[in-house]
């Protein structure tokens, strides 16, 4: 019986050594996965996923603490991309975080703006131009439609406007939906 125990402990010793050496030799630092996830997220920095911005949400996903379906601006496409990257099952968008809506732009109603700079401080991407007691305006090309500037505005002069597609940004309709009903098309 003794030899059995001795043999096993000997085996354990040798293999433990091998593992210890390997652990040192193959040390790994940094977490490249979080960058990959961050690249997929739409960067609206809107916080609807209950994280301060896209980077914290990406790190949380990389650490596996949180689900991949908490990003309404990204919508289905982002969830599909995350599911592909992380090899997990696709889950529909979590209703609690909000619903997927077409891309919107914030527009300041210039008659009612009192120049209080509250929205400038709230904008996560500095897309609002203006100074204290001066007229404010939103830089359309930079606004990500995160709606963070709406609550702080005391006179509620910012409203969200849907972006109208122009001929060169227009997208062909998805034929998969009209596939079977093609017969009665004009």
């Amino acid at each position: 019986m003794l030899t059995a125990i001795l043999a096993i402990t000997l085996l354990a010793l040798i293999l433990g050594l091998v593992l210890g050496f390997a652990a040192i030799r193959f040390k790994v630092e940094g977490d490249p996965i979080a960058d990959q996830i961050d690249k997929i997220l739409p960067q609206t920095q809107c916080g609807q996923c209950s994280f301060a911005g896209c980077r914290p949400y990406a790190e949380a996903i990389a650490a596996g603490e949180v689900d991949i379906n908490r990003c309404p601006p990204g919508g289905e496409a982002t969830i599909h991309a995350l599911a592909d990257l992380l090899e997990v099952e696709f889950k529909p968008l979590d209703e609690e975080c909000g619903v997927e809506k077409p891309k919107m732009l914030a527009v300041i109603d210039e008659d009612r703006c009192i120049g209080c700079t509250l929205c400038i401080q709230a904008c996560p991407v500095d897309a609002i131009l203006g100074a204290a007691k001066h007229m404010h305006t939103v830089i359309a090309s930079e606004c990500t439609g995160c709606e963070l500037c709406l609550p702080p505005c005391p006179v509620d002069c910012i409203d969200m406007v849907e972006t109208k597609p122009k001929p060169n940004t227009w997208r062909w309709p998805d034929p998969a939906h009209i596939d079977l009903k093609l017969g009665d098309q004009p």
Binding site: Q43, Q45, V125, W172, D174, P175
Partner: peptide
């Protein structure tokens, strides 16, 4: 029709990614 749809989707996605990268840098 499928290929035209895919092309405009890809081009739109590329524009979105470009905007997202700019938004990340600004943030």
């Amino acid at each position: 029709h499928y290929f035209r749809f895919a092309k405009t989707e890809i081009m739109n996605q590329q524009q979105e990614h470009a905007k997202a990268d700019i938004a990340r840098i600004r943030h």
